[in-house]
Design a protein around this nucleic acid. Structure first.
Length: 417
RNA sequence: GGAGGAGUGCCCGAGUGGUUAAAGGGGACGGGCUGUAAACCCGUUAGCUAUGCUUACGUUGGUUCAAAUCCAACCUCCUCCA
């Protein structure tokens, strides 16, 4: 990579965020001379963002730290259309109420990573519904349609691949690209935003926006993308047994979030420390050199730091302590995820199968049954083999809970209330 | 509008009348080994009130003792032609 002169690009580069950048010299120069305003777009199809979105959030954070202005663009308008990228099943369309709920819920996460406000480098949160919904089809086509040629769009990798694989590419999807380009233009007009960042899969879309800006407003816009995040064994980031690794604490507990980072593969430790923590680089270099079991210390630091950023210092430390007790001492830890059970429900004795399901450790009785057969289930650290086993008052420990374990890593405390 | 091809479980993909809850692979989960890692080995991978029952091979009907497999209509996608 080039030697960047601006703090922003230098830091981004050193930490391994940069995959592609359009016109980097000029962007670099801009970042030295003055303020850059940049945005990252986020979907709002769920109540929470997940680790897959974290890279985008971190980029905005770095931007702000370097003295520039970040914009969080919520895709309230585009969500209404439904992003067709996922393709296979036409996603069910969300209604306005759901979308607004999601936006409200997602906002809280950004507040942990960015400082919002009215100051020159304070972050802004905008919603593209505010302009997309007002568009008039014919006017929009006349004003912007001429600037996009099918010929050009056919050369984009995302389009090419789709056609090569003989997968359908709908007109809607074509338009989605145009909307995104238009978002960029609109943001530039409203706020002077001149940089769009995103994952490498967004490159084509971002370039479309840059070209639109040049043609319509003769303005120079820039693109900066990061490599899509995968683990070194090639898996997509962000999936666990329970599903997505959510950033909202009510969707995934800080403990589980901590565990996610703790279980990082050896080969990813250094990379993740650079991307997802703000430890000094020389410290990271020291940590990633650790070998064998010692590398676990680096993973714990990664977990606690990353967790603190998303959930706060205290929950992160609690999570670390809980993990220490659970894994290193093998003792009962109060901080494990807890599930409450009604006393009435419990009074007659509760079957293990049902308990596993209510604790969200198994999806169905059948699954729970199979895993009991496979020797994966423990009650208060004692392996059970009888699927008819009932949980009774005798199982309640001195701490007033029942510890239910599924596999070595997943533990839940049942608390009767 | 015409001709041809396709639609299978989380994904890819085999199966063209019964022994098919459906080969094989991937993924995921569990067990083993370890370091709460990777790799590797083994197992599991529809639901339930469970020696049985119910759902399931695009949708809906039909033929048959029996259908993912045959027939009809419909829906969707792909290719070629107009």
């Amino acid at each position: 990579m080039t030697n960047y002169k601006s703090d922003f690009l230098r830091i981004m580069s050193e930490r391994g965020y940069i995959h592609q950048c359009s016109n980097e010299e000029e962007l670099d120069a801009k970042a030295i001379d003055g303020k850059v305003t940049a945005y990252v777009g986020f979907d709002c199809t769920a109540k929470s963002l997940h680790v897959g979105n974290l890279l985008g959030i971190m980029m905005l954070r770095k931007l702000q730290q370097a003295g520039h202005k970040p914009i969080v663009l919520i895709g309230g308008g585009t969500t209404r259309v439904g992003d067709p990228s996922g393709k296979d099943d036409t996603r069910q369309l969300l209604n306005d109420e759901q979308i607004n709920e999601n936006i409200a819920s997602i906002r809280t996460v950004f507040e942990r990573f960015l400082t919002f406000g009215d100051g020159p480098t304070d972050a802004l949160m905008l919603n593209n519904a505010d302009w997309l919904l007002k568009l008039n089809y014919i006017d929009f086509l006349r004003d912007y349609g001429p600037h996009f040629t099918i010929n050009r769009m056919m050369t984009f990798e995302s389009v090419k691949q789709r056609l090569d694989r003989e997968q359908p590419l709908t007109f809607l999807e074509f338009n989605y690209m145009i909307f995104q380009a238009y978002d960029f233009l609109e943001l530039n007009r409203q706020t002077g935003c001149n940089l769009q960042m995103g994952g490498s899969d967004q490159w084509g879309n971002i370039i479309n926006g840059i070209e639109l800006g040049r043609r319509v407003d003769s303005t120079e816009l820039y693109a900066l993308t990061t490599a899509l995040l995968t683990t070194s064994s090639g898996a997509k980031m962000g999936k666990t047994a329970k599903g997505a690794v959510w950033l909202n604490a009510d969707m995934l507990s800080p403990y589980d979030y901590w565990q996610f980072w703790r279980n990082t593969e050896d080969n990813d430790v250094g990379r993740f420390l650079r991307l997802f923590t703000e430890l000094p680089l020389d410290e990271i270099e020291r940590l990633e050199k650790l070998e064998g079991a010692a590398l676990n210390d680096a993973k714990k630091i990664l977990a606690t730091t990353a967790c603190a950023m998303a959930h706060g210092q205290e929950p992160a430390e609690t999570a670390q302590e809980t993990a220490r007790k659970t894994f290193e001492q093998g003792t009962m830890a109060e901080g494990l995820p807890t599930v409450e059970i009604n006393a009435e429900e419990f009074s007659g004795g509760l079957g293990v199968l049902a308990a596993l399901v209510t604790a969200n450790l198994a999806k169905s009785n059948g699954e729970a049954r199979r895993h009991i057969k496979g020797g994966a289930v423990k009650i208060n650290d004692e392996k059970i083999t009888d699927e008819k086993r009932q949980l009774t008052g005798d199982d309640i420990t001195d701490e007033g809970v029942i510890k239910l374990s599924f596999g070595k890593k997943r533990h839940v405390l049942l608390r009767i209330k």
